[in-house]
Simulated scan of single mutants.
Amino acid sequence: MKEQQYNTLKDQISPPTPYALNLLKAFVVGGLICVIGQGISLFYMIFFDFTERTVGNPTVATMIFIAMILTGLGQYRKLGQFAGAGSAVPVTGFGNAVISAAIEHKSEGLVLGVGGNMFKLAGSVILFGVVSAFFVTLIKLILVSVGVASW
């Protein structure tokens, strides 16, 4: 079978991809995750006296923790199947990636299985986050030194 015949047959058999619906679901779910994060931030600011400058870290930690719990219970997978990138792009996707790898390799033991595979995907995220933060800080330091920006 030639490539053109194969592509024609594939197009006839495969159902069309609902791009607009997928985009809408990802947008709504990703936005809902962000609204939940904003609610957690407000909760911490009201009940624990955090400021807008200091509330970020506990909010991110809480969102990652929630995603890890949902992944362990098997619920985050359902959310990911429904929302696609809408559940993977926010910080909750990071928590899901870490715990998914740990759960997948738990049969290999705690050290070589869970510990060795837990940060395979997340390790690159951490690495590029730290490196990009370094370069952004370096650029800002240069701009402050020449008087273009201020702290």
Score class of each variant (00 low, 15 high):
Gly113Asn: 15
Phe50Cys: 08
Thr8His: 02
Trp151Ser: 08
Ala101Cys: 12
Val130Arg: 03
Thr8Ser: 09
Gly86Met: 04
Ser100Met: 10
Ser107Trp: 03
Glu3Gly: 09
Val111Cys: 07
Met68Trp: 02
Tyr6Lys: 11
Val60Asn: 01
Phe128Gln: 14
Ala20Glu: 11
Val35Ser: 13
Leu110Lys: 11
Ile36Trp: 04
Tyr19Ser: 10
Thr54Phe: 05
Leu32Pro: 06
Asn22Leu: 06
Thr59Lys: 15
Val148Gly: 04
Ser145Ala: 13
Lys140Ile: 11
Gly74Asp: 02
Val148Arg: 14
Val55His: 00
Trp151His: 11
Gly84Ser: 07
Gly72Val: 01
Lys120Arg: 14
Gly74Arg: 03
Asp49Thr: 06
Met63Thr: 05
Gly109Cys: 12
Trp151Phe: 12
Asn22His: 03
Phe65Gly: 05
Glu3Pro: 04
Leu32Ser: 04
Leu127Pro: 06
Val91Tyr: 03
Leu42Val: 03
Gly74Ile: 00
Met63Ile: 07
Pro90Glu: 05
Tyr19Val: 08
Thr137Met: 10
Gln75Ala: 08
Val114Asn: 12
Gly56Leu: 13
Thr8Pro: 03
Ala88Asp: 00
Gly123His: 05
Gly39Ser: 10
Met1Trp: 08
Thr17Ile: 10
Leu73Cys: 04
Ser41Ala: 15
Gln4Gly: 00
Thr51Met: 07
Leu121Ala: 13
Thr59Asn: 14
Asp11Cys: 05
Met1Asp: 08
Pro18Arg: 03
Glu52Leu: 15
Ile142Ala: 15
Thr59Ser: 12
Tyr76Gly: 01
Gly30Leu: 07
Gly147Lys: 06
Lys2Trp: 05
Val60Cys: 09
Leu112Cys: 07
Arg77Pro: 03
Leu127Met: 09
Gln81His: 00
Ile13Gln: 01
Asp11Ile: 05
His105Phe: 06
Ser41Thr: 09
